[in-house]
Simulated assay, not measured.
Amino acid sequence: MRSRSRRWWLARALGRSRLVRRIDRVEAWAVVAGLVVVLVAALYCSTVSDDIYAARSRAIAAEASTRHQAEAVATAASTPDKKAAQQATQRHTVHIQWLFQNATHDEVVKLDHAVKAGDHVPVWLDDRGNATTPPLTDADARADAVGGAILLWILVASTILGGVALLRRVLNRFRYRSWDRGLRWLLVDGGGPGAHHR
């Protein structure tokens, strides 16, 4: 059925049959052109994905060079995080301390497991010795690239297909008006029942 439908659209757009009206050709060309643009947009979005990945990889590499992992020590036993009690993974809050350039730093952090006082806790530090988030990975760069490309393609495709749908709606109105004029001519002006009463 799909192959027949495709051949029908191509026949309407490219064929020379006199049975195909001009408005049908316009509609068919709009559909074919819209599909072509959507396919070309997919190729373009693939290139955009590569560009996003390259940019994110450079940013991640620069970020990773300013962060390093260190060992902190829990100053007390961790406590369950009440705010995260409804989540699938229980979080724990703990106060930790670490040494950076002969200075003691401390902070309250959240872990996905319980610890006791004196336990070692890995912590990511920035260049100033402050606790920070772990650096992103290559997988994060790929996810950003794929996600950005998909969002761009959806935006382009929805815009193109929405424009085609709007055009088809307008053409259908012209088509209905043409049918009305044809029926009026057939029934009134072309020898139909209305013509005999003149």
Rank of each mutant, 00 (worst) to 15 (best):
S158P: 00
Y176M: 11
E71R: 11
N172R: 15
P122N: 09
D138P: 04
D119L: 05
G182L: 15
A88M: 08
A61P: 05
Y44G: 14
V32D: 01
A85P: 00
V73C: 08
Y176K: 14
D50E: 11
D180V: 14
A139D: 06
A85M: 05
D144H: 04
F100W: 11
L14M: 15
V109G: 02
L183G: 11
R181V: 00
H68A: 11
L136S: 10
H105Q: 12
G194P: 01
L35Y: 05
R173T: 11
K110A: 13
G129N: 02
E71Y: 09
Y176L: 14
A195C: 00
A28S: 08
A62T: 12
I160M: 07
L186S: 12
A74G: 01
K116E: 13
F174S: 12
W8G: 02
V32K: 02
A141F: 01
S178H: 13
G192K: 00
R198C: 02
P122L: 08
V31S: 00
G162V: 08
R184E: 12
T104A: 14
R16D: 08
R56D: 08
V73R: 15
H196P: 04
W8T: 05
R67Y: 06
Q87S: 10
C45R: 04
M1G: 12
G194F: 13
V109C: 07
N102P: 03
V20C: 03
H120Q: 14
A88S: 13
V38G: 06
G148M: 02
H197F: 14
A11L: 07
S57H: 02
R142E: 06
K116L: 09
V94T: 04
E107K: 13
T93S: 13
S49E: 14
P134S: 09
R21L: 14
L43Q: 08
A59R: 15
G190T: 02
V121E: 06
R173C: 05
A28E: 03
L125F: 04
I52A: 01
P193C: 06
A54G: 08
A143L: 10
F174A: 10
R22H: 14
G118D: 12
V20L: 04
D140T: 03
A165N: 07
F100S: 07
D189K: 15
G162F: 08
D24C: 07
A145M: 04
D144E: 09
L161I: 07
S65E: 12
D119W: 01
G192I: 01
Q101S: 11
D24G: 04
A41C: 00
M1R: 08
D50Y: 13
R198L: 08
A54T: 13
A103P: 00
V108G: 06
V20M: 03
S5M: 09
A64I: 05
R169G: 13
R4E: 07
A30N: 05
N172Q: 14
R91Y: 10
D138E: 15
A74Q: 01
R21H: 10
A76L: 05
R56V: 03
I23G: 04
A33D: 01
E107I: 00
A145S: 10
R56P: 02
D189L: 11
A117M: 06
